[in-house]
Design a protein around this nucleic acid. Sequence first.
DNA 1: GCAAGGATATCG
DNA 2: GATATCCTTGCA
Length: 205
Amino acid sequence: MRDDASGQRVGRIVEVEAYDGPDDRASHARFGRTRRNAVMFGPPGVAYVYLVYGMYSCLNVVTGPDGSASACLIRAVEPVAGVDAMREARVRYERSRRRRSDPKHDLAGETRLRALSPERLASGPGLVAAAFGIDRALNGLDLCDPASPLRFELSGGREGRALDHLPVVRTARLGIDYAGPPWTEVPWRFAIDGNPAVSGRSRTS
DNA sequence: GCAAGGATATCG
DNA sequence: GATATCCTTGCA
């Protein structure tokens, strides 16, 4: 994925989760079409961005045909270019968050961010959005349009590179205990095995 | 282990 | 209109 902000941030998607339509009790589509999830029911290739836990944005891409509801959550990205821009975006996000909770500026968090290794800058769904400066203003954006400020591209050129050789691991989805079985168990999380940018707590599960 | 944080879906 | 809950994260 790539954006046009200063620094031309580019990242390789290394961890995703699939969410299906109204039958999937873990999906936002489980309540049917609402104002929040409306784009899930639209055409594929479009960004579905929502706020979780009152503080983090999550980027999804709509996957199913127009009229059906499904989406893919981008859980982790390995920085390829624009690392400095990602770090600055993380710092800006951290500052805005601290300002809300604590009037005093917290320098510890910022110092830790400055020392964070590049592969950890976007190693979680909330961190992907923070590193790329993504918020709900991008909800509905066409991620496949080369003219979009944020977009997906095939790696290795127009046709993409064969990814069959990559060690992809499948696990259950995370943070969806409320859904209950079988949805807590379907292996719809996909990650590149051993990639250092895969989200932290996920790797130990 | 838990709190922060605000929108959202659901219930009254 | 009130409230329980949430596709998370960083720190105790």
